[in-house]
Design a protein around this nucleic acid. Structure first.
Lengths: 344, 344
DNA sequence: ATTAGCACTCAACTTACACGAGTGCTAACC
DNA sequence: GGTTAGCACTCGTGTAAGTTGAGTGCTAAT
């Protein structure tokens, strides 16, 4: 499928117009509004070809054309030009991020809010996974008759709690001593750096072979790396209602339903977890409830470690280039800020 | 304003019918459908009087009547009869709560989900405040150059983190020692039981007068009692869209907006915090965004200590008696479960 | 005091029709 | 041969007129 230059121009015109107006667009309108230099009749012929290629769709016989998922895909891959943010917008984002990293949790929540505010779409942010974080402190504490609590503090200001089941948990003092020991080995390293076998060997030397506490280490590591324990924040969910494509209540409801379930959110953000920016258009989404939406997501990171993922959800008719720009800008600031955090 | 017996009957009929159908109801329908023993003409006259009293409203000239906020208020205060849950429903709730108290957080989330499922309204739950909880463990840990992390574990399986700013925080070992000390005084008591002055005096004896750690105690207590640090969970937000009264997108949007903001949720649930069940109808709500909604809320508790609040939000035409029944049932189970927790 | 009867109101639905944005096709044009 | 003007055709949208029916209020009879 090769498109001529003017077919690309026409497709771009259709997509731009549809993104702005949400109305099907016809040949005459293109001829008038966009500087293609062709008559409506010629454009009509080209549009007919574009439709044969599956790039645009006619909602009904006497209506204009609307981009298909495939059309958006082509646009996003080849036609879209990245728009720089205005200095005001960039400054707004920069300040917001600088002012809000008391701790990672509120930083990510504020970031999500800001993105929704600027784009008017819905934002999802998955909390950083601790895999690549430098451990600042780890502490075991009593919890109940059959479990202990483990609290993890990282250099990048993340605090995480895990509850771990075990029969006959040690008393407070023992837990405190084990914590001191454990910290000697792990502080200043990240999970991926630590040789688990070696750590368990060293611990065994101190507390004696076969102590339940040794196998506990495995459990802590498992939970720390476990995907489902991360939190996900959403913001701007209400924005869904502003788009005419969701004026069908059932469509809106199914999107809301997806956004209310943590498992689904994790699947949406986590599937194909990647550092680079990814765009998933309409039917390409694996989750049924958001097959009318497009999703733009990117992992935020520090050094070579991946932290978490930011996703922006809107109608397939979303302003891809704006969202991509915002996302790049956020990434830039976050990576900068988080790197500073690691350094200091 | 005194209502005759048959006026009450008619009002009740109108409200019951409207709750079920969301359609304005006329005199003839009442005469046919409900066993009042009067002709439509007589009912018409009574309805006219009810309207004069502001209990029902005519949306437009040739339409039937609809209950007003004032009408619902009268109904809720005097007319409503509490409906017992079916054994299935009660059993469902009981099992759900029994199976889900690994920790309070997921217990409350599951409870919220269950309520939304049964009622089809939106549920909000504020996480327990720790004021009245028995402390199981408290631990200070390093956080960053200018703050420490405090983790609190309670007998009722709540884990809370606080970050506290302080210049030159002590090192890990000192924090560990202080924690051990602190635990000696507080474990097994609740915040309200502890004599703060005495505690600080005792601590001063151990670490020396005027240590910054002494004033830290005040800060910890403040944060533990602070309202804004509690989390609020929502469930069934999407249900809002099922009610015809929110088919106006702007109305739905403003409700969604309120439900997305934690501050607003805390205000909704917290204002007039009370142990007993409270019903807030339409315009009675202090938050503008939910003035088209009714709210039924109740505090859940253990012993004589108030834990948190459960709120159920729906259209003013909500099924008050069903919701009240469900809420009572939940309260019953929660109090039972939480009391068991305290005991064991 | 109650009710039957009647005139009146008004939202909601139906029907019919005109409008216009859009298409596809064909024939003429450069 | 690609381009374009012209035209018949389609079909959703908007509007106006008319119909229906649920509901009211009032009055007079019971």
């Amino acid at each position: 499928m090769v498109l001529s230059d003017r077919q690309l121009k026409i497709l771009q015109a259709i997509i731009n117009d549809y993104i702005a107006t949400a109305e099907p667009i016809g040949s005459r309108t293109i001829a008038k509004k966009y500087d293609i230099g062709l008559s409506s009749a010629t454009i009509r012929n080209e549009m007919s070809d574009l439709e044969d290629m599956g790039l645009i769709i006619q909602p009904h016989a006497s209506a204009g054309r609307v981009p298909s998922d495939k059309g958006y895909r082509l646009y996003v891959d080849n036609l879209m030009n990245r728009k720089e943010l205005t200095p005001e917008q960039a400054g707004f984002l920069f300040n917001l991020i600088q002012e809000n990293f008391e701790d990672i949790e509120s930083l990510m929540q504020e970031t999500a809010k800001a993105i929704s505010l600027i784009t008017n779409y819905t934002t999802m942010v998955s909390e950083p996974r601790v895999l690549r974080m430098v451990i600042k402190h780890i502490q075991l504490m009593p919890y109940d008759e059959s479990s202990i609590a483990v609290v993890l503090v990282t250099e990048s200001k993340v605090i995480k709690n895990y509850v771990i089941k075990m029969k006959n948990p040690p008393d407070t003092d023992s837990l405190s001593n084990i914590s001191l020991l454990l910290n000697k080995f792990v502080v200043g390293k990240d999970f991926a750096d630590i040789d688990l076998g070696l750590l368990k060997l060293e611990l065994a030397k101190m507390v004696g072979e076969g102590q339940p506490i040794i196998s506990l280490i495995d459990t802590i590591w498992e939970m720390a790396l476990e995907e489902s324990t991360v939190d996900v924040y959403t913001s701007g969910v209400k924005n869904i209602l502003t788009f005419p494509e969701f004026s069908d209540f059932n469509k809106a409801k199914s999107v809301f339903q997806a956004l209310e379930e943590k498992d689904i959110l994790i699947t949406i953000l986590g599937k194909g977890r990647t550092e680079e920016l990814k765009i998933v258009i309409g039917e390409e989404n694996s989750i049924d409830q958001i097959k009318d939406c497009s999703l733009i997501k990117a992992g935020y990171k520090i050094g070579n470690g991946l932290y978490g993922t930011i996703g922006i959800l809107g109608p397939t008719r979303m302003n891809y280039s704006q969202v991509v720009s915002v996302l790049y800008e956020i990434e830039k600031n976050l990576n900068y800020t988080l790197r500073a955090l690691r350094g200091g």
